Each structure stands twice: as structure tokens, then as C-alpha cells.
Simulated assay, not measured.
Amino acid sequence: MKFGKVDNPDEIDFKLPADAAANKALLGEAKKQDHPNIYIGCAKWNKADLKSFYPKGTKDELAYYATQFNSIELNATFYNNFPVETIESWYNKTPEGFRFFPKLHQGISHWKRLKEAKEQTDIFLDGIAHLQEKLGMLFLQMPDNFGPKNWENLKAYLEDWPSGFPLALELRHTGWYDGSWDSEQLYTVLEKKNISHIITDSAGRRDLLHMRLTTPTAFVRYNGANVDSDYTRLDDWFERLEQWTKEGIENIYFFVHQNHEEASPLLSAYLIKMFNDKLGMSLKIPHDPNSEKQKTLFDGK
């Protein structure tokens, strides 16, 4: 994970921005429910990246991962259009209630840059539809050099997006958020199309961190820095998510990334435990094969 990587995380102000003024009214119109649907997980299940997470002798990483987490942010689909048989195998290896959150293929977002991308989009959706009810939400990540000058292309693509596939959007150009462009144009289209606005919290890209929701869904991509402050940052995130829960948020999708991914399950487990302890949720806390490490983590925080 190179995006937002820094060499001096201790010198960064990780304070979250104030809540967006529009959020309270938006959440006030959400469906009333006892508690939000909460999905917390990692970005990948590859054993090479999460080698300390899997018990010795694990033969199928996804099957084991799905016994510990209720979701996965599926970055692999950004790099490959997988055959239907592979997608169906993901479905069959995971339990009822598990959810996948696949990233749209780079051919759509980075190569075509959304222009004349209908054929590529249809091919992608035809395949990913085989996840059936385990498809949580797709997300479209645009490259760093895709800024407001590309607004008309983005708008056209979003307005043509099929409503049967839940979608979230991640933008990585500062111009969308620095006040140099009227961002209300973007929010209006996202709200109209019921497309969620991804919140990207990365150590080295504080310029992209916003708090503007466009649906009653908080989709957060959290990039840690492999330092102790990763946990205190999660404390702050829990407070914000708790606030949104009280105001009526319907869905919380929170995915943890690390430069060294071995820490991702521990960070995810830490956040899950806060939801259980402080909001009375009953989410499964992922097991750490090194139980003493897990005990130390929770006793010391």
C-alpha cells in the first residue's frame, strides 16, 4: 500500500475534520432502525500479506478469513477481470451474511477514465453479479490526476450507473475538496443517484480527508501507518461513527489498510471490540493465533 505512505507519521496532525453541515439533515431522513449494519474488514485475504493471521496449516485463506470477518474490501478486482467460476467459488467459500466490496476494474477508471466505458462496465458487472446477495457495495476509485476538469465525464458516468448495483465513489485529486471548485455539483449527483461518497483517511493525504456523506452509508477506507497512533486514530473514528449512529446512519463499511498488512486484522479487531463494548453490538472479534498479543492489545488500550 504505497498511497499516502509517510516516513514521519509522528509529525502529522491526525485530527478528524469537523462533521459536514449537511450530514445531520441527510441522516435525519434515513430509515429508522435499531442499529446500523456494520461491516469491518481488511483489503485482502492473501496469506503472503497476512501471514501471521492464519493458523499454521491453513489451506484456504478466504474460507478461513470469512470465519473471522464479515466482509472484505476486494482490491483484486481492480487488477483482473476474474472468470465467473472464480467469482462463484468466492461465493461458495463464504458463509451466509458475508459481504464483498469489490473495486471496479482499472480499465474503467484508469485506462478509459470513464469515457466510452459502458462495454467494460457491463462485462465487469455481469461477472461480479455472481456474488449475488453477498455483493455489499462496489466502489469506483479514480486516479490522482482525475480532477474537476473531468467533471462532465464523471457526471455522465454516474448518471448512467445502473441502480441495481450499490456504488461508492473515491476521488483522489485535491481539487475536488480544496474549495477551488463548486463541490455541491458532485454531492447533488451522488445524492440523486444514491451513490456513497468514500472517506479516505490516509497518513500522507490529509488533503483528501472529508466528512461529507451523500447517503446514509459511511464507507471509510482507513490507511494506517504501522505506528501506535493507528489505534488512537481509530478511537477518534469510533467517536465519529458513534455520533452518526445516534443521528441515524444505516450502514457502516470500514476497511483497514496498512503498508505492512499483518497489522490490519489487529486494527480491525480493535475497532470491532469498541462497537461491541460501547454500542452493544455482537460482531465477531477476529482471532489472533498469538492470543497473548491479542490480550495485550485489548488490555493495554
Score class of each variant (00 low, 15 high):
267 L>D: 06
300 G>R: 06
256 V>F: 04
33 Q>I: 07
108 I>W: 02
148 P>M: 06
83 P>T: 09
25 A>P: 01
291 S>Q: 08
73 E>T: 00
160 D>C: 10
243 Q>A: 14
69 F>A: 12
289 P>G: 03
202 S>M: 13
245 T>A: 07
53 F>D: 03
267 L>Q: 11
209 L>Q: 12
183 S>M: 08
27 L>R: 01
297 L>K: 00
291 S>P: 00
43 A>L: 13
267 L>N: 12
194 N>P: 07
278 K>S: 03
157 Y>T: 06
185 Q>Y: 05
22 A>P: 00
30 A>N: 12
80 N>R: 15
276 N>W: 10
147 G>Q: 01
59 K>T: 10
198 I>V: 15
45 W>Q: 08
130 H>E: 13
258 Q>Y: 12
95 P>R: 10
51 K>Q: 12
121 T>S: 09
274 M>S: 00
32 K>G: 02
85 E>I: 11
146 F>K: 03
17 P>Q: 08
144 D>R: 04
3 F>A: 09
31 K>G: 10
82 F>N: 05
164 G>D: 14
154 L>V: 00
181 W>A: 11
223 N>H: 15
75 N>R: 12
272 I>G: 01
76 A>M: 11
239 E>I: 07
93 K>L: 11
177 Y>I: 01
80 N>Q: 14
289 P>K: 05
40 I>P: 06
160 D>S: 15
86 T>S: 00
192 K>R: 15
135 L>K: 02
161 W>S: 01
138 L>E: 01
55 P>E: 11
47 K>Q: 15
232 T>R: 11
284 K>G: 13
